[in-house]
Nucleic acid binder design. Structure first.
Lengths: 183, 183
DNA sequence: ACCTTTGTACACCGATCGGTATACTTACGC
DNA sequence: GCGTAAGTATACCGATCGGTGTACAAAGGT
């Protein structure tokens, strides 16, 4: 694995687990198994590393969710999105959504991490809208938004309180009810 | 206003606007109009100040939501919760939920701010469950969870992407549909 | 009148922050 | 075999971090 990728991968993991401000460059380089000097050869500042880590996360995440929803027939894809979120929040390494965390730590909308979070969520919403439309919703936008919001709620609640099977199940049930009403 | 209250109020505002790690003690004391020395007379450490600020926030927030939902008849209270969230996220000073932000910055569950966030959300969920029960839901728990998740989704999405009228409206519509189905 | 409390002003502490300089090793291409 | 690029090791930079020591001004209670 090329050095730059090793660095950004390790950085993403540490940022995700530890937070952005709380992860110092010394720790980042140690975690990547490289010298601070090497890290700065590839990423001219910590801000650049944060940006690269979030871009990597975006690609990874979008890939995972697409792979999951495209594995089922078109009519089931909107609800498969909630299934995906439900599986994700149950993972032991789950630490919330990296982009929500970024928006929380970089509160100003103009800050790069916050803007990346905005774009990431926009892409997820667009994907979900397409799925709802293709699955035959009469009005795709309202149900796509509703499913998205249930997913976001599941993400942050699992982050704050830990994953609860009952909550995941209730979220899916609500999603099913909303989806059936949207056909 | 007593000095300690001035400090914790200013601290809460700054933490909420700026984040916890990003708000230094020098800035905190300046914002409170008080010397760093005075700040440390009332709060032996920054961690203590964070804890006090979050406790204040909890009291304020629970008070506001109760006041809002109790202003309408019992049958309308579950949906009035979503109305409250919808109004809140549209405020210009809105910076997300202070407790979700705290859980994001203090990722480990054992950290005090994260634990306070857990307790805060638990209290909100209990309140909502009571409202759903009193309003005549056949099974209060699933619909209470669903309304809660829609609210949490609305909070984080408005934080990341800014408040959108369409999104708020879609959240309320989904809530109405879920609530009608729960009677 | 006096003493205690409350707060100010400000210099200071060690540690850590993001980031850099210098000198050295290693490996690979031509 | 030699030059160049990649990476290491380590010491260092100024700034800021959370937190403290000290000396002094005001104000209130008795």
């Amino acid at each position: 694995m090329p050095t730059a990728n090793r660095i950004v991968t390790a950085a993403l993991a540490l940022f995700y687990r530890n937070g952005f401000h709380a992860s110092g460059v010394d720790l980042l380089s140690a975690e990547a198994g490289v010298t601070k000097r090497t890290l700065y050869k590839y990423f001219p500042s910590k801000d650049d590393l944060i940006e690269s880590a979030l871009l990597l996360r975006h690609e990874q995440f979008i890939g995972r969710v697409k792979q999951h929803v495209l594995a089922v027939e078109a009519e089931a894809r909107p609800l498969a999105y909630l299934d995906f979120i439900g599986d994700w929040v149950a993972e032991t390494e789950f630490c919330g959504c990296a982009f929500i965390n970024a928006a929380a730590e970089f509160a100003a909308r103009e800050q790069v991490p916050h803007r990346l979070a905005d774009q990431h969520k926009e892409e997820i919403k667009a994907l979900l809208l397409g799925l709802c439309s293709a699955a035959g919703a009469r009005e795709p936008a309202p149900v796509a938004d509703a499913l998205f919001l249930l997913g976001e709620g599941l993400i942050v609640t699992s982050q704050v309180q830990g994953c609860s099977e009952a909550l995941v199940s209730n979220a899916k049930q609500a999603g099913r009810l909303l989806w059936d009403a949207a056909l």
